[in-house]
Amino acid sequence: MLTRKQRDLLAFIHKRVQRDGVPPSFDEMKDALDLRSKSGIHRLITALEERGFIRRLAHRARAIEITRLPEDLAAGSTFVPQVIEGSAAAPAPAPARAMRVETYSQDLPVMGRIAAGVPIEAISEVSHHVAVPGQMLDRGGEHYALEVHGDSMIDAGINDGDIVVIREQTTADNGEIVVALVEGHEATLKRYRKTNGMIALEAANQAYETRLLRDDQVQVQGRLVGLIRSY
């Protein structure tokens, strides 16, 4: 049984993972739940982990994995639990009202490296391919992958060397993490905001300043929908 605050936090994390492909920061959680300090978030996270609703992944910045949802949150949700390969024994019958698990994957082209830091030259060549779980992909959209270079998005859970999965699109909503082409030749991965005819490309690392550019200087090339990390 979850308290109201525990349920609200789990719902907020789930919504942000579904939207951005990565969990929110502790500051964003604190603001969403209207708490005064991050210590309250730490207590809620610990309680959710102890009850088996989330799992914190070691050695990863802000890495939280949702392992299950309460029935009221799971109803009508696109949440897909992680599939773990086991022994070759025959599987047990699915319990009543079990959620359907999609296991297909799709090979996506990795279009070189994308800067999560100072912008690098625009990306145009396929370096290799990577298998991506189908539940990361938006139905009906075209996707590609990029290797992250730099640390400007570490507070969004995106580290140097990660593979980001991008849905091709030319528009974005405020707050979404996008691949932005700057002045036709520099590509960067940043959080997108548009206000008063200007585009703000925000880093998720206090060491980097927000870049303010005219609308005609920025072209959205796609939106972040997933992330893959190797160890």
Rank of each mutant, 00 (worst) to 15 (best):
E168K: 13
D215R: 07
V80N: 15
G112Q: 07
A11V: 00
S37K: 14
T78Y: 03
E209Q: 12
K190S: 03
E121F: 10
R60S: 07
P91R: 09
T210W: 00
G161Y: 10
K194G: 00
R167P: 07
A122R: 01
A89N: 04
R229C: 05
E176V: 04
G141V: 02
V164Y: 10
M29L: 05
G21F: 06
I64P: 00
E71H: 03
Q206R: 15
H149E: 12
I199A: 00
A115Q: 02
Y144F: 12
E186C: 05
S25I: 05
I66E: 04
L227D: 00
L73A: 13
I177T: 10
A92L: 11
I114Y: 05
M136V: 06
V179R: 03
A203Q: 08
P81Y: 12
L44W: 01
G226P: 08
E50L: 13
P119L: 14
L201Q: 11
L2K: 05
D107R: 13
E121A: 14
P109Q: 13
P70R: 10
A131D: 11
D162L: 07
Q82M: 12
R191D: 01
T78G: 15
S25F: 09
I163Q: 06
L108T: 04
R7W: 04
A172S: 15
R62S: 11
G157F: 08
R211P: 01
E125Y: 02
I158A: 10
N205Y: 11
S124H: 07
E168A: 09
E209S: 10
L146V: 13
E71Q: 05
E202V: 03
S39K: 14
M198Q: 15
R191S: 02
K30S: 04
R191Q: 08
Q6I: 02
R229A: 11
T210L: 02
S77I: 05
E28Y: 01
G112W: 09
E50D: 14
N196C: 01
L227T: 02
A58E: 12
T171H: 04
T46D: 13
T171Y: 04
L69F: 06
Q106E: 15
A207S: 06
V148T: 07
A98N: 02
A131F: 06
R193S: 05
